[in-house]
Design a protein around this nucleic acid. Structure first.
Length: 455
RNA sequence: GCCGGGGUGGCCGAGCGGCCCAAGGCGCGGGACUGGAGAUCCCGUCCCCGUCAAGGGGGCGUGGGUUCAAAUCCCACCCCCGGCGCCA
């Protein structure tokens, strides 16, 4: 829910209906809201009028003659009963109205495609080095790069999947034992993989702090009342871990904790933009993922991520979306990984997002571009619920816009490095950009990650 | 966890049952003055309903309660500061 949307609902409800249609959601939400909104406003007017009458009577009491006094108090008491009844009605309507309002997804930008069944995103551009394509994947590679003429290297041997490489060749991961003690989608990783994870975090933090982002480690848990303000809680419900005994949830992304940093804050125009780069573990139940990506560390319950977050002036947010997307491309491209940027279709957008670019890395063993980063303009959908406003130079107040963009999902990026940098002998080259973050540690990998049994 | 002190508008801060609907200051915006700036002066600056009108309602950490009337009294909870305890 956002202020922009509330205005649109009252002025041009047809556009909101159209937005819901594009998202493949129920359009009748608009009518339900408008009906409740009208009834609430009418009830509020009646309530305010009753309170006014009560105030008039009550204010006369101290100056009333003794004889008149009791009559006035009796009248005030009677009005109190009336007010109580009207309050109940107005409150119930307000709650219902609020609930419907909060269930609205964000508006959608004009540049977001509306797609036919089976299409979830539209490629925008390709970057990074030419992908390594196993000859058996050639056909699907062409399909995924159609119209862009992406240069590539065809190889006759199918690269080993990251999971197999990690556990059986490098012997630096153990998901079987993790499954036994914690459950599926958990992992133990060891040795060079640990160093790699830290190096990736430092690399991304280094680049982003140089661009003016302030590094931050946020709380890894949030109150449920707060998570409801920054996320589409109804949808995320099953994806979020709840903490037993406390009214807390584990964050699925630093985005939510970073957005909440300015909860109920009033800003001055000169305070913006506020650029944050968070590092945090992310906790996701992955309910509904079924048996997809069950092997390895691609889709897991706990992973690490560096996250860009921007609070901006409303008129600047679309420029910021491009900017932070470019930042992540620079990070991923700088690692020497082939990627593409896709524009998510309207029906695939998260409720909070008005437009999302995903950045997908080519995975040579799968023959697919897979999601590694996601960048969204949330407009005032979060800031409205959080109450993050800016007082403009002309003294008007607006809700700020928020944007988020993966800087680097380190755990998942490791899977991409393992597949893109592996050699036939099982060695995995360390991306050049990471070496300066590893060289000072004698036990960290420097040029290659060596199979455990070979070293 | 225990004891004590405290939470008021973007910020600081007065008020501690009705005398009018939160004083005053800072910051910010507009205007006057100025060749321009500064200083000074005037106006505005919490939220909601209402045609960004007239007008009305609500709001003083949160939620209850007492009262015709609560920022002001009572209860519970939350948060901050100080001391003690517990743990690392």
């Amino acid at each position: 829910m956002s202020m922009l949307l509330l205005e649109r609902l009252r002025s041009r409800p047809e556009e909101v209906r159209d937005m819901l249609r594009r998202r493949r959601l129920d359009e009748s939400l608009v009518d339900r809201f408008n009906e409740l909104d009208e009834r609430w406003r009418a009830a509020k007017r009646r309530l305010d009028e009753a309170r006014h009458r009560h105030n008039v009577v009550s204010r006369r009491v101290p100056r009333a003659a003794p004889g008149e006094r009791d009559a006035l108090i009796a009248e005030a008491k009677r009005l109190n009963d009336e007010i109580r009844a009207l309050e109940e009605e107005a409150n119930a309507l307000e709650r219902a109205r609020e609930e419907v309002l909060w269930s609205f997804p964000n508006l959608i930008h004009d540049s977001v495609p509306t797609c036919p069944e089976g299409v979830d995103s539209v490629p925008v551009r390709f970057g990074g080095p030419p992908p390594i394509v196993y000859e058996g994947h050639l056909e699907q590679f062409v399909r995924q790069t159609e119209g862009f003429g992406v240069g590539h290297t065809v190889v006759g041997r199918r690269p080993i999947g990251h999971a197999d490489l990690l556990e059986n060749v490098l012997k630096m991961g153990d998901t079987a034992k993790a499954g036994e003690v914690a459950g599926s989608r958990f992992y133990y990783v060891f040795d060079d993989i640990v160093w790699l994870d830290f190096a990736l975090s430092l690399y991304a933090l280094d680049i982003l702090t140089r661009k003016g982002f302030r590094p931050v480690i946020p709380p890894y848990m949030l109150k449920t009342d707060v998570i409801r303000r920054v996320a589409d809680y109804n949808t995320l419900r099953d994806a979020i871990y709840r903490v037993e005994g406390d009214d807390l949830v584990l964050i699925g992304t630093a985005e939510h904790a970073l957005a909440a940093y300015l909860y109920r804050r009033e800003l001055l125009e000169d305070d913006l933009p506020i650029l944050l780069v968070g590092w945090s573990p992310c906790f996701r139940r992955e309910a509904g993922a079924g048996s997809r990506d069950l092997k390895g560390i691609f889709r897991v319950h706990v992973f690490h991520k560096v996250e860009q977050f921007v609070f901006s002036l409303p008129e600047d947010s679309w420029r910021w979306l491009e900017e932070i997307t470019r930042n992540t491309e620079e990070i991923i491209g700088g690692l020497g990984l082939p990627y593409r940027v896709v524009n998510l279709c309207a029906h695939d957008l998260g409720a909070a997002s008005a437009k999302t670019y995903d950045i997908e890395i080519w995975m040579p063993a799968q023959g697919l571009y897979r999601e590694m980063a996601s960048c969204s303009n949330v407009l005032d959908w979060q800031s409205y619920k959080l109450g993050v406003r800016v007082t403009r130079k002309d003294m008007s107040r607006q809700y700020v816009h928020t944007l988020n963009c993966t800087g680097l999902a380190t755990t998942r990026t490791i899977t991409a490095i393992l597949e893109n940098y592996q050699r036939e002998d099982g060695y995995v080259e360390v991306p050049k950009a990471l070496r300066q973050y590893l060289e000072q540690f004698p036990n960290a990998p420097h040029d290659y990650i060596s199979p455990r049994n070979v070293k």
